[in-house]
Simulated scan of single mutants.
Amino acid sequence: MPLTRPADIYLRFLQLAEAVRGLPALPSLDPLEERILVLVAQANQSKRRLSVRDMIAVRELGSPAMLHNRLKSMREKGWIVLQDTEDARRKQVELTPAAMRHFDKLSHCLVEAVNDV
């Protein structure tokens, strides 16, 4: 049955994206880690450098201790890496190649949902 409304496309995308999340590529993220991942990806997409200090300034991510715990968890899960900068005290947060492949898969889900129209 063809999709006819924009909401149908979005709901189809969610269905396809959920299937991608079920694939054994990277361990799943909790909602706060998902939010952090999106911030890192958006910074990456706009060619901005994003440091741990920059992320601490984003209040909705919680306390510095909580943020550090989440970043550590995301590093251990293989989603992000912390790169050295010219200032040894500052670390830049970047996506791993595996995280980029995850976004590629989600992009394919979006294209497939649109093509189902």
Rank of each mutant, 00 (worst) to 15 (best):
S51Q: 06
E94C: 15
L29W: 00
L50Y: 02
D54T: 08
V52L: 13
I80T: 15
A98S: 11
L71E: 08
Q42W: 03
R75G: 11
M66P: 00
V20K: 07
R53E: 14
A41N: 07
L23V: 04
P64W: 01
S63W: 00
N44G: 11
V58E: 10
V38R: 13
E60T: 11
E33A: 11
H68E: 04
K91T: 10
L82G: 11
D87Y: 09
P27Q: 01
Q92M: 15
L32P: 00
R21H: 01
N69F: 06
K47S: 05
V58S: 01
L32C: 05
V93S: 12
V20I: 14
R59T: 13
E86A: 07
V38H: 07
M66C: 00
K47R: 11
A99Q: 05
M55D: 02
S28H: 08
P27I: 00
K91V: 05
G78A: 09
Q92V: 15
A99N: 03
L32D: 09
T85C: 11
E94F: 02
R75V: 09
V52N: 03
L71C: 10
V81W: 02
V38L: 14
V58I: 13
Q92Y: 02
K47I: 04
D30I: 05
R90E: 15
L26G: 04
L67A: 07
E86W: 00
E76L: 12
M74F: 05
E94I: 13
A19C: 00
T96V: 04
R59V: 08
P64A: 13
T96A: 06
V38S: 06
V38N: 01
V93I: 11
A98C: 01
A25R: 06
I56T: 13
I36K: 05
N44V: 05
L32E: 12
A65G: 12
R48V: 03
V20G: 02
K91P: 02
S63K: 04
L67I: 15
V81Y: 08
N69P: 00
A98H: 09
I80D: 09
I56V: 15
P64D: 09
A88Q: 15
P97S: 08
P24S: 06
P24E: 04
V40M: 03
G22T: 01
A99D: 02
A19T: 10
L37P: 03
E33V: 01
E86Q: 12
L82H: 02
T96P: 02
K72Q: 09
A88R: 15
T85W: 03
R70K: 15
R53G: 09
R48G: 01
M55G: 02
I56H: 07
V81S: 14
S46R: 15
L71T: 11
G62N: 07
M66K: 13
A25D: 12
M66E: 10
L61I: 05
K91G: 08
R21D: 14
D87A: 14
L95I: 10
D87V: 14
Q92C: 06
L23K: 08
G62K: 04
R53T: 10
D30E: 10
K91Q: 13
A19Y: 00
A65C: 01
E33G: 12
D87H: 14
A98L: 12
